[in-house]
Simulated scan of single mutants.
Amino acid sequence: MKKRQQKVRLIRAAIQLIFFIAAPSLFSTAFAGIKSVFLAIGGQQTVTWNSFLNITALLLIITILFGRHFCGYACAFGSLGDALYELTAFIRAKCFGKKKKHGYPEKWVHRLQKVKYVILAFLLLSCMTGFYSKLQGMSPWDVFSMVTAGKLPKAAYLVGTVLLILIMVGMCTQERFFCQFLCPMGAVFAMMPILPGALFKRNRPNCAPKCTLCKKRCPAHLDIDGDTAHSGECICCHACAAACPRQNIHMGEINTIK
């Protein structure tokens, strides 16, 4: 089982690295498409299709058909979070002998997951009311895009830089800190009507007695049943399937597993 988990992590890390190098601004571009729509509405202008919306539409379609694989494998912000979390876990294990997964209690994780919807609503309302122009320089993902493009943020982006640093600190304390709690694009993805075949499911009768490895390994603390109210929070990292000792978790419909 450990070899299977290691294999899944290595494959995922390799894919993340490729996307991080080749397309680090996908997240910012996708959300820019959504902002452009609400900025046009707020300015009482005609909503026109643009290059940002091409990326937004593509990622939304992929999410509906295949789940949030973009979040789990292709988002540079998420990949940064995974790297910082794993680095912190490695340091904890080497320096303090703490090998267990660290993070927040399940109750707090589910509560904090709602914060990203508040952030999304605030940003979209800011776009519609014209307040968004006053937020220039405060966006941590704009600063992140500059850094990944090899540019140092200017003094006007001081607030955004500080917020990015604070988010990176949070990434060290909880797996997928930004994605789960703060990401406005993650909130959009979580509200998408994901097709049933794109959700992880398990054949509960075939589970080992009192086994909760899938839930313990899930960064979002989800019950892997395919129809949980939190299913939109699944980032398709495949950690649950890799952790299952009976290989009892699959994506798509499950009839019987013997």
Rank of each mutant, 00 (worst) to 15 (best):
H221D: 15
H221F: 05
I167A: 06
Q247F: 00
R202Q: 11
G137H: 04
V147K: 01
T148V: 13
P196V: 00
F178D: 14
I41F: 00
K134Q: 03
V188L: 04
M251R: 15
A242W: 00
G43K: 05
C244R: 14
A13I: 07
I15G: 00
C179I: 06
L182A: 04
A32P: 12
Q45P: 08
Q113K: 05
G170H: 07
Y85C: 15
P196C: 00
H221W: 03
N203E: 10
F178R: 06
A89I: 08
G103I: 11
V8W: 01
Q247T: 08
F177L: 07
H102R: 09
A22R: 11
P184G: 04
R4Q: 05
I11Y: 13
S25H: 12
T63M: 08
A242I: 03
S145E: 07
F131M: 07
P245Q: 07
G232Y: 04
R4P: 02
A242K: 01
A155L: 15
V118I: 08
C244N: 12
K215F: 14
V115A: 01
K114G: 02
L80Y: 07
K99S: 09
V8Y: 09
M128K: 00
T48S: 14
L53I: 09
P140D: 11
S231P: 01
L84H: 07
P24W: 05
L166A: 13
S231M: 07
Q5P: 07
R217M: 09
K2C: 03
D227K: 09
G97A: 04
K98E: 09
M146C: 11
F52K: 12
H250N: 07
L112R: 02
C71A: 12
H221C: 15
C240D: 09
I15W: 04
A57M: 13
H69W: 13
C236K: 10
S133R: 10
L213Q: 12
A190K: 02
V159T: 15
L58T: 01
D223T: 14
Q180Y: 02
M185S: 12
W141F: 10
L65W: 03
Q113Y: 00
I61L: 05
W49L: 14
F77A: 15
G43S: 08
G97H: 07
I64T: 02
A22M: 14
I235C: 12
G43C: 05
V109D: 03
C172Y: 03
K2S: 09
A241I: 01
R9S: 09
K258T: 06
G137R: 01
A239L: 02
N248K: 09
D223M: 07
P153C: 10
K201D: 04
S28I: 13
R68W: 09
L17W: 15
I41Y: 00
T161F: 07
V118C: 02
I257Y: 06
K215V: 15
A241K: 00
C234D: 09
Q247L: 03
I55P: 05
G232D: 05
G72R: 05
M168Y: 06
A156I: 05
G67F: 02
H230T: 12
A14C: 13
I165M: 14
A208Y: 02
T46Y: 06
M146N: 13
H238Q: 11
F181D: 11
A241C: 02
M191P: 00
L17D: 04
H230Y: 15
K107C: 08
I55Y: 08
S51I: 08
F38C: 03
I167E: 12
A239E: 14
K101V: 13
A229S: 12
C71W: 06
A30S: 11
V8N: 09
K216G: 12
D223R: 03
F189C: 05
